[in-house]
Structure formats: structure tokens, C-alpha cells
């Protein structure tokens, strides 16, 4: 497939994240990939060790992504869910399975540059086997009109001795209405790292994220970091849940938030619970505005207060 078959606007839309979708197109780079252009599968490329199957349904696709037992996949698997239309419904039902002893990175790009009444839904099931290294990165861009409704729900099972890294980024453009629910079940000796970042920029942006980690296996460990910023009436509510339900498991939740301008609401709340007496779960939260001295320093370099604040938010939400 040549570049021209995939909407140019989508290819370029993740520039603010330093991502060029072109690098991930079929025929570019060695990674497995699946591209969805609205409700049409416009490209699939499998590689050894990675099974990628998609089937179009009325408003979207059902997809299976399987990493075969023992495979160490060097190049990231790329999933691109793009819609250039202003309106419509895109529904995705992915089933992601990493068999035992596998290593893989999955990069999902969800880009809706013209969204103005567009709905994107996902129901994802992740099954990560034992002794895996699995990383899942989702980067979103919802255009500049606050015109998307995005509602992904995912269940993730993380097997014994596996490391699971999850990052979610929604900091460029205007989010619109976003509702994310994530349940992660961590088995014995597994390690979970989840990083979530979102930025609400106007009264038309409302972001609700509930990220729950259940430490179900002995000695499972997790760190959940949530960073949120809201300005000009935007709303961001984040709930970081961690439960320690097995012996010697250890969880930490970190929430950081910045609120600017009248009517903006930003809540990043940790909810923690330890059922097993030998488990520990802790949290840390900070909120409010940036220290005056930081603003002074940037303003003394000629920036306005507004520009200085933007820079500081950007720094706070930086990719890790």
C-alpha cells in the first residue's frame, strides 16, 4: 500500500507527540501492523511470531492479535485507528493475546483530526501469559474541535512473572468527551507500570479515566501514575485504584494535577485498599498551580504568564 491510500491528515496528525505515522505504514519498517481507515481495514502485515487478523463488522472491526509462544518481537506492533470524517461511529473489539515467554511492544495510534460528533469505542481484552514483557502504548489525537466521544474499556490479565507497561497519552489537541475504563489483574510476581496523561483545554472537554489495578497474585507489584491538567473550563477526573489482595504485594499510586482558569476542574484521586495484611499500597497526590518562582523564571525570559504555564504543563505531561 502506498501512503496515498491512507488519509494524509491522519499520517501527520501526531506530530506534536513526535510520531510520524508514515514510519509505521505497511512496507515501512519491519513491524507487524494493522491499519483501520474508519470502518475499513486498509492494511494488515503479519510477521513471524505475530498473528494479526481483522474482520470488518457494521461499525468497525473485530481483531485478533496473537504473539506466538516464545517470540521476542523486535519492532513494535502498530495499530492505527484513524478516522478523517467529522462524524460517524467506529467500534473496535480487539483481543490481544501474548502467549508465554514473549516480548512485544504494541503501539496504538488513535487519530481523529476532524472529529466533530465522532464516536470511537473500544472493548479490549488483553491476555498476557507467564514470563512476558509486554508494553502497550496508546496515543490519541482528537482534533481541535472538542468534537470526539471516545470510550475505551479494557480488561487485562497479566500472567505470572510478567512485566506489563501501559501508557496512555492524550495531551495534544482537544480531547472532547473521553471515558476510559481499565481493569488490570496482576498475577504472582508480575510487575505493572501504568502511566496516564490527559489535558482538558476547554469547557467542551471532559475526560474521565478510571484505571484499576488488582494485585491478585503473591508478590505482584504496581506503580500507577496519573497526570492531569485542565484549563479554560476543561474537566479531568482521574481515579487511580489499586487493591492489594494477595500476600506481599505492593502497589503505589501517584496523582499530579494542575488546574488553570475559571471553571476548570481537575481531580486525580487515588483509591487504595489492602485486603491482605502483608501487602502494602501507598499513594501520593499533588495539586494546584505551579510555584510562582517557576513562572517568574520563565517570564523573566520574556514569556507571558500564559505561555509560561503552557510550557510547564507540557513539561509535566512529558513522555517518560
Amino acid at each position: 500500500m502506498s501512503n496515498t491510500e491512507y488519509p494524509e491528515e491522519i499520517l501527520q496528525s501526531l506530530g506534536d507527540y513526535n510520531i510520524d505515522v508514515r514510519d509505521f505504514l505497511p512496507g515501512h519498517g519491519g513491524g507487524a501492523k494493522l491499519l483501520l481507515d474508519f470502518n475499513k481495514i486498509s492494511g494488515v502485515e503479519e510477521i513471524e511470531g505475530v498473528v494479526l487478523k481483522g474482520r470488518e463488522i457494521e461499525n468497525g472491526i473485530v481483531a485478533d492479535i496473537i504473539i506466538k509462544e516464545g517470540s521476542v518481537i523486535e519492532e513494535p506492533v502498530h495499530l492505527c485507528f484513524g478516522v478523517k470524517n467529522e462524524t460517524g461511529v467506529q467500534e473496535i473489539f480487539p483481543r490481544i493475546i501474548a502467549e508465554d515467554n514473549t516480548e512485544v511492544k504494541i503501539q496504538a495510534h488513535c487519530s481523529f483530526p476532524n472529529a466533530d460528533g465522532l464516536i470511537h469505542k473500544m472493548f479490549g481484552h488483553f491476555y498476557i501469559g507467564n514470563n512476558c514483557k509486554f508494553s502497550y502504548n496508546e496515543t490519541h489525537y482528537h482534533g481541535e474541535k472538542s468534537g470526539a466521544l471516545v470510550a475505551p474499556v479494557s480488561y487485562m490479565y497479566i500472567g505470572e512473572n510478567s512485566i506489563y507497561e501501559n501508557t496512555f497519552n492524550l495531551t495534544s489537541g482537544t480531547p472532547g468527551k473521553v471515558k476510559i475504563m481499565l481493569d488490570i489483574y496482576a498475577m504472582k510476581n508480575s510487575v505493572i507500570r501504568s502511566n496516564i496523561k490527559a489535558f482538558g483545554k476547554s469547557g467542551k472537554d471532559s475526560i474521565r479515566i478510571r484505571d484499576a489495578i488488582y494485585l491478585e497474585g503473591e508478590n505482584a507489584r504496581s506503580v500507577l501514575k496519573m497526570k492531569a491538567a485542565a484549563k479554560n473550563g476543561g474537566e479531568v477526573l482521574m481515579y487511580g485504584i489499586t487493591e492489594g489482595n494477595a500476600p506481599r504485594c505492593n502497589g503505589h499510586v501517584e496523582c499530579q494535577e494542575i488546574v488553570l482558569g475559571k471553571g476548570s476542574i481537575c481531580r486525580a484521586r487515588p483509591f487504595i485498599r489492602a485486603i491482605d495484611p502483608t501487602s502494602t499500597v501507598s499513594h501520593e497526590a499533588s495539586l494546584g498551580r505551579f510555584p510562582q518562582k517557576w513562572l517568574d523564571e520563565l517570564q523573566a525570559k520574556g514569556l507571558t504568564e500564559e505561555e509560561a504555564t503552557e510550557i510547564l504543563i507540557e513539561a509535566m505531561l512529558r513522555e517518560e
Binding site: W294, Q299, G302, A315
Partner: peptide, 28 residues
């Protein structure tokens, strides 16, 4: 005048103890 306006006119200050700001690169 405010800080920004003075800076834009060509005055700047290097603090006795400059702040550390996580996430901001030296380049930026």
C-alpha cells in the same frame, strides 16, 4: 511594568538558586 514586559525590553535575571523543573529539557 510587569516581569514579562521588562524581559521583553531586554532585562533578565539569573536567580541565586534557579529552580529545577521536571520534564523540561535543557534544550527547550
Amino acid at each position: 511594568l510587569g516581569v514579562t514586559e521588562r524581559a521583553q525590553r531586554g532585562i533578565t535575571l539569573a536567580w541565586q538558586e534557579p529552580a529545577r523543573i521536571e520534564g523540561l529539557s535543557v534544550l527547550k
